[in-house]
Amino acid sequence: MIQLVEPYTEDKIRALKMGDMVHLSGMVYTGRDAVHKFLHEGGKPPVDLTNQIIYHCGPVVIKEKGKWVVKAAGPTTSAREEPYQGHIIEKFSIRAVIGKGGMGPKTLEACKKVGCIYLHAIGGAAQVLAECVTGVLGVYLEEFGSPEAIWAFRVRDFPAVVTMDSHGNSLHAAVLEQSREQLKQLV
């Protein structure tokens, strides 16, 4: 298990390779469909995202006794952000994108250029991942609705797999090609 701890420097990110299993500790900012569209269209981020990590996640967060409590916080499907992600990675020097299902060639190219990785979290594992959130530091763009807002989470030992690295390797592309080959034997 590799520990990835804030600050997220380009060197630390470039050292990670496809297939590495990591535990992440530090800040992550949630952002999904509405946030990506907003940033892509030139919206000014309400928090500084430079060298930060974006988490494709629409959590369940409720207020108990005046404090935010994270009830569930697993990843959402990343493919929907493919039209926007590469641009956003380059614009803000994003160091990692956490999600599920992987992303396409535009994002892979931006990862290579900027020094960014795609971290695949375990889809559906909302409780294991909520346990890793040790603090809710703020919420922004709440007008997009709770699941679509930017939540600033501090996480500890958040488990993920590097499925796209900053050297042009994508596990998703590799598995797709291999499974297509296998299918030819079966039909």
């Binding site: 369940v60 009830k71 569930a72 959402t76 559906g124 594992a125 909302a126 409780q127 699941p147």
Partner: peptide
């Protein structure tokens, strides 16, 4: 924890 298995 009696909480959602998945956030969606």
């Amino acid at each position: 924890k009696s909480q959602p298995l998945c956030q969606d």
